[in-house]
Simulated scan of single mutants.
Amino acid sequence: MWDVRGATRAEKDASIARLRHSFESLRGRIPGLLRLEIGVDTSRADYACDVVLFSEFASQAALDAYGTHPEHLRVKQELGDLRIARHQVDYTVED
């Protein structure tokens, strides 16, 4: 989950669009990435994050490899200082 830069709603929306485009470019490029979804907050609550990335991987090993995959590193570089806060939860789903 991220809060993104932007002094106005239009600036935040532009940041979110940039983030969405960058992450969506990963589809089909990361081995073991089964699902990637970008959710944009609609509540506008003052405590809510601006955007969330939900991704599903085939295994813990696939998630681990994602962290250093060149395409993921490219996205991190593209987005640079776009975020002002970030929260992360990685978890395993038991069968």
Rank of each mutant, 00 (worst) to 15 (best):
S22F: 03
V93K: 12
E78T: 03
I30P: 03
Y91A: 09
R44S: 13
R44Y: 12
F57K: 01
S55T: 11
K76F: 04
R74I: 06
T8A: 01
Q88F: 13
L36Q: 09
I84A: 01
C49R: 14
S22D: 15
R35K: 13
Q77C: 01
D95T: 06
E11Q: 15
V51R: 02
V52P: 00
Q77Y: 02
D50S: 06
D81M: 08
A48H: 06
V51D: 00
C49P: 00
G28N: 11
V93G: 01
G67F: 11
V40N: 06
D90M: 12
A17E: 13
D81L: 04
F57I: 07
G67V: 08
G32P: 12
V4T: 11
D81K: 07
L63M: 11
L73N: 02
F57L: 01
R44G: 11
L79W: 02
G28Q: 10
T8C: 05
I30Q: 08
L73A: 15
F54G: 00
H21M: 12
R27I: 15
D41K: 07
E71Y: 02
Y91D: 07
D13T: 09
K12C: 02
A10C: 03
D95F: 09
A48W: 06
D64Y: 00
A45M: 09
A14K: 11
L73G: 02
E24V: 09
L82K: 01
L63W: 14
S43E: 06
R9A: 14
H87A: 10
S22Q: 14
I84P: 01
V40H: 06
K12I: 14
P70Q: 10
Y47R: 10
D46E: 13
L33T: 10
A10H: 04
G28M: 07
L79S: 04
F23M: 12
A85E: 11
R74K: 15
H72I: 08
L33F: 03
T42A: 04
S59F: 05
A85V: 09
Y66M: 05
V52E: 04
A17I: 03
T8P: 02
V51F: 03
H87S: 09
L34S: 07
C49Y: 13
E56A: 11
L19A: 08
R27P: 00
A58Y: 03
A61V: 11
G39P: 00
D50I: 08
H69P: 02
S25Q: 12
D46Q: 10
R74E: 07
L73C: 08
I30L: 07
D41Y: 06
A48Y: 07
A85F: 13
T8L: 06
H72S: 04
R74Q: 12
V89D: 05
L63Y: 13
G80I: 04
